[in-house]
Design a protein around this nucleic acid. Structure first.
Lengths: 160, 160
DNA sequence: ATACATGCAAACATTTTGCTTTGGC
DNA sequence: GCCAAAGCAAAATGTTTGCATGTAT
């Protein structure tokens, strides 16, 4: 039972959240989404969260004022992912994680194998430049990458 | 239905497979594993596979001569992972993937978002050196990383 | 009015566990 | 003979779908 704790830090401070939300909604509208409470809530939660969230995280989130059903949230996430507004990450938990795709923001993560804690890494990612090169040599298009570091966090070292 | 095809390439050529297998078994023995057919089969399959395999891939593999039960294979994989003989990867499929940890072999992957094809990348990974640095600044121990590139493979581009 | 979006429940896929039996040591 | 490992079956977890209803446009 050491794994898969969800650490719900209160969302980080994002002064431009309102603005990002408005933009995201606008983007959705132009893609043909209807403006529903569930959509606004899901976008808002994802934008304010400074870490990837699971379907359960979102559909049980206190800010989901609409109390939208898990299936509804799921379908929204699918659609948002297809339209490249969000990205699905595989972070080794059994569940998939979702995170907002924000212009100019790329994140790599540091994950504790014991407690499941996920930390955003503040590093200059050296992989970006590789992408073009790989795209060219492989013929793959629309390339992006995920880089995750796994290990044992200090607290888990102490309690082990 | 475009995702999650499993591409069972015949295992790549690995001339030293026999040797690696013998070593792995020896390692297991020294860790207290009993020498069972299921263990030998699972190790053999993982060593000969040149790509990560899911639990289903392994427990339905033709080389699993013993016909070991899925639960048995699962428990073996758990144990092998705990003892760091294999590594579990999250490659975005719903299922977890497993791959042998071989000395001096680190792999990064290129994965098609449409058909699920997984290709091992033959690149000089620029992240290795970051690990020490991150370990130092974060306090995490036993660090390793996963780097995956996702995109749309040429075939899926054609059929899209 | 029409389609898209939702809620609820059920189906699926995969992982994980319980318990009895088998077999390595 | 003892205890780890295997087999079988069932539970648990998370994802996905079907269908009737509600609602944004």
């Amino acid at each position: 039972m050491s794994k898969h704790h969800h650490h719900h830090h209160a969302g980080c401070i994002r002064p431009e959240a309102e603005q990002l939300l408005a933009q995201a909604i606008e983007r959705c509208r132009s893609l043909g989404f209807r403006r529903t409470k569930a959509l606004e809530d899901v976008l808002s939660i994802l934008i304010r969260a400074c870490q990837p969230l699971t379907l359960a995280d979102i559909s049980e989130h206190q800010d989901l004022g609409s109390g939208a059903d898990k299936a509804t949230v799921y379908r929204l996430l699918m659609k948002l992912e297809q339209r490249s507004l969000i990205r699905r990450l595989g972070l080794h938990d059994r569940a998939a994680y979702y995170t907002m795709i924000l212009p100019g923001e790329h994140s790599d993560y540091l994950i504790c194998n014991d407690c499941g804690r996920i930390e955003k890494l503040d590093i200059h990612c050296p992989v970006q430049s590789l992408e073009k090169q790989i795209s060219k040599s492989s013929g793959y298009k629309r390339l992006y990458h995920e880089l995750e570091f796994f290990g044992q966090c200090p607290e888990c070292q102490a309690s082990a």
